[in-house]
């Protein structure tokens, strides 16, 4: 029951950006490489994070990702920023005075570390989602030897997410139209019934899909179909994680 979800999906931009022309498998590897480099960088290497931030901004520019959109979508991380802000106050170790309030020095560094790393990670993921249509990300994961069954499950999920959400919205409107306005947990039965009937509908659609697939000769093994693919060029995208790793290692190995 914690957290929240962005109500709207990240829509891949239609602009023909340099990043948009890259193969998704290349981009997934680069993003994973970049994020692990950021996570591995020691918190006190402030300059290294400055380099990482420049790298993310460069990638965002190469994806034609407007700064406004990036800023708005970064709000996903708010709950953990709140958690991080508490750390200087509940942290142990040597303390210092900031405007007369005693705060823990290691706590401050921990808060800084969480905020900067989470922000860079979120920004990198936003760049990936913005510059790559979902179908290409799935195809890219498949080419990276991600288990086929998982990729297919993800494909079905993404395909039907909008439909399920629309169905849910209709159920909600029908419920509210009849005056349901629950304010306490024990009044939530109608909401639960909505969720329950949504599950039944999802299950039944799963069965109809199953029949539709069998009708077209499906026997339990997914054929390799013409998944979207682009030329697999590594340069210059690979510079993104490489530079981040070089910087991280430069700090780690003095």
């Amino acid at each position: 029951m914690t957290g929240r979800h962005p109500g709207t999906r990240l829509v891949a931009s239609l602009c023909s950006s340099p990043a948009g022309a890259l193969d998704a498998s290349v981009k997934v590897i680069c993003v994973v490489g970049f994020v692990t480099a950021v996570v591995a960088t020691p918190p006190r290497a402030v300059l290294a994070f400055a380099v990482d931030a420049l790298l993310v901004l460069a990638a965002a520019a190469a994806s034609c990702l407007p700064a406004r959109v990036l800023a708005r979508r970064m709000s996903v991380e708010t709950p953990f920023v709140i958690f991080a802000v508490l750390m200087p106050f509940i942290g142990t170790g040597p303390r210092m005075d900031v405007f007369g309030i005693g705060v823990s020095v290691p706590g401050c560094w921990a808060a800084w570390s969480i905020i900067v790393k989470a922000s860079l990670g979120v920004a990198a993921a936003i760049v990936l989602a913005w510059s790559t249509p979902t179908a290409e990300i799935l195809a890219g994961l498949e080419r990276l030897r991600c288990p086929r069954a998982l990729v297919m499950i993800a494909g079905f999920m993404v395909r039907y997410l909008d439909l399920v959400a629309a169905e849910l919205r209709r159920l909600q409107i029908a419920r509210i139209s009849r005056g349901d306005d629950p304010r306490w947990l024990w009044q939530g039965r109608a909401v639960a019934t909505t969720a329950g009937s949504m599950f039944v509908r999802c299950f039944e659609r799963g069965e109809r899909l199953h029949a539709a697939m069998a009708s077209r000769g499906f026997t339990g093994r997914f054929p390799t179909t013409a998944a979207p693919q682009r030329p697999r060029r590594w340069f210059p995208a690979i510079m993104w994680p490489l530079v981040a790793w070089v910087v991280a290692l430069a700090v780690l190995i003095p």
């Binding site: 029951m1 079905f156 039907y160 399920v164 849910l168 939530g188 639960a192 899909l209 199953h210």
Partner: peptide, 29 residues
């Protein structure tokens, strides 16, 4: 459950994802 349950699992994932966006009343609004 066999490979033929893959579409069903995908639908269940879509269901869980949507159910996570469903607001349940807790207390006083």
């Amino acid at each position: 459950l066999s490979g033929s349950r893959i579409p069903l699992t995908g639908l269940v994932a879509a269901f869980v994802f949507s159910a996570q966006m469903l607001n349940f009343p807790v207390a006083s609004g």
